[in-house]
Simulated assay, not measured.
Amino acid sequence: MPLLHKIAGVVVVCAVILGLTLPGSRRGREEGGQAAAGSSSTPGAVNAGAASPAPASASPSASANAPIPAAAPEAVAVKANELGQIPVLMYHRIVKKPDRTLDRSTKELYDELTRLAKGGYQPITAAEFVSGRFDVPAGKHPVVLTFDDSTPDQFALDANGAPRPDTAVGIIQQVARENPGFRPTATFFVVKDVFGMDDAQASAGLKWLLQHGYDVGNHTQSHADLSVLPEKKVQDEIGGMEDRIARLAGARTATLAYPFGSVPRKEKWAREQEGRYSFQGIFLAGWRPSPSPFDEEFDRWNIPRVRSEGKIKENDCAKFCSTAWLEHLDKNPHERYTSDGDPNTVTFPKADEDRLAEEYRGRARTY
């Protein structure tokens, strides 16, 4: 196991045990949340070239003292809770025979995705998640599938231009075919070596992903530990990767994932650089599901993820990896985000009204 991954694991576990507060402003409202991606109405995570609107907010506006309207009967029937937690699952290499700590086997990925499909989960992209606009059927639970490092086992096209069946994308497509209604999408946080492809292949590959509803995010050029770098090197790592993605895909990203979960000495260095990159959200390494983007506790600059793994002792995965967390949410469904089926409203039990972020009050419905 690489030393930096071990260090990252120790830091993550310590944060859980000690209950440390994540750094940065909650929700990032002071910075305005500007990003380079559009809303979830467009498939994929990126918008070609142009800057895009800030994350969706309440519309129309509502006074803090105005009563919140009643939820639709359909939302009440499914016990909608759009202030519930959302698992953001973190994957790395997907191989037949894992030989590294963060690896998952092709069978393990297939089994976990099938479990999600059978358990009523619906994948959304990282860009959709941070935008606060995503369309999930009533009674279903959003989940964000994220893949770091853009390794060849995650995505490759065969001679006919279709995803190879032994890659992560091939497995996602298979599970979607076997489970009608399960949306085939995920977010790939890429580095300079894009899926082990040459530039022509990488350009075709990234465009295929975006055209088929997948999402691309920034993971720096060299998978650098940003916590030890000065401002210029942080911006060159992120900006250089953003330039490469724009050149290959004709588009820019909405989200960044910190390599090793390591935060720069000043977070603003990573959030934006004028004329080069401007994110809507930034993701950490994993240990727990994320708060809903409508929850007052949501911090778009420090979004936690859950490492995909069984209930093993290493890094306390017996409690804090995907298998354990999915079991916990199954046993405690009131903690989980359940959709009301309407992307224009935010429905939740009235008892949780004090958790609602004020900017979403105009979209709120209670029961």
Rank of each mutant, 00 (worst) to 15 (best):
H334S: 10
A357Y: 02
P289F: 11
R164M: 12
S131D: 12
Y121P: 02
S39A: 11
G38E: 10
S292N: 03
R27T: 02
R363L: 07
D149N: 13
G181M: 13
V169D: 02
G205W: 00
S57G: 11
P23E: 11
L248Y: 04
R361C: 11
R183V: 09
G250A: 04
H141F: 06
T255E: 02
E314M: 14
G286R: 02
V46K: 01
V143C: 06
I86D: 00
Q221M: 15
G24M: 09
L157C: 04
V16H: 04
K118R: 15
E359H: 07
R361A: 08
E359W: 07
W301M: 01
D340F: 03
P23M: 11
I303L: 12
I94R: 11
Y360E: 01
A168K: 02
A66S: 12
R288C: 06
P230L: 08
G9T: 09
V191R: 06
R355T: 06
K6H: 12
G44Q: 01
D199S: 15
A45N: 08
Q235E: 15
V10K: 14
T187F: 04
S262A: 14
V190T: 13
Y110A: 15
D99H: 08
Q122A: 07
G275H: 05
A126C: 15
D199H: 12
K319L: 14
Q154R: 11
G32H: 14
G239I: 05
P87V: 06
G161I: 07
F188K: 01
D193Y: 07
R26Q: 00
F147S: 00
M90A: 05
